[in-house]
Write a protein that binds this DNA or RNA. Structure first.
Length: 119
DNA sequence: CAAATGACGGGGT
DNA sequence: AACCCCGCCATTT
């Protein structure tokens, strides 16, 4: 039983899931990616919601940087009053991703760079 | 099988 | 900025 199977019943998505795990693990500290871009990188061009789903199902003790994935509007999608929402905010704060104005500038900290430099 | 559900995205008001 | 609306798509109800 692979982790992909535990999250998906559709085996056709297994390759995409593996790619997703790789791309997620590759986001460096101090940078963030979006659900949509992560979906593209995993070969699911219109699968932003799928990425969100996969992230929400990661084991609670995962070492993967789930907190470095935010929405295309440069905001955190988790409820800021939830435990995980606060956790994500604190982690991003610690990585210096929250700008002085309190916002996240994707053009500056978006990853991979090629997807955000033209913003 | 139909309808609802998301850690979404793009466009419009 | 703050909403709203609709398209998206695997999964769940």
């Amino acid at each position: 039983m692979t982790s992909a199977q535990s999250t998906n019943r559709d085996s056709t998505l297994a390759p995409a899931y593996q790619s997703f795990l790789q791309q997620l693990a590759a986001i460096p500290p101090g940078r963030v990616c979006t659900y949509g871009v992560l979906a593209q990188l995993a070969g699911q061009a219109r699968g932003a919601r799928l990425i969100a789903r996969w992230l929400s199902h990661l084991p609670a003790d995962t070492r993967l940087p789930w907190h470095r994935v935010i929405n295309a509007r440069g905001q955190l999608s988790l409820d800021k009053n939830s435990d995980s929402g606060r956790e994500q905010y604190q982690r991003l704060l610690a990585e210096g991703i929250i700008a002085r104005n309190g916002r996240i500038d994707l053009a500056q900290v978006g990853w991979p760079r090629a997807y955000f430099t033209s913003l």
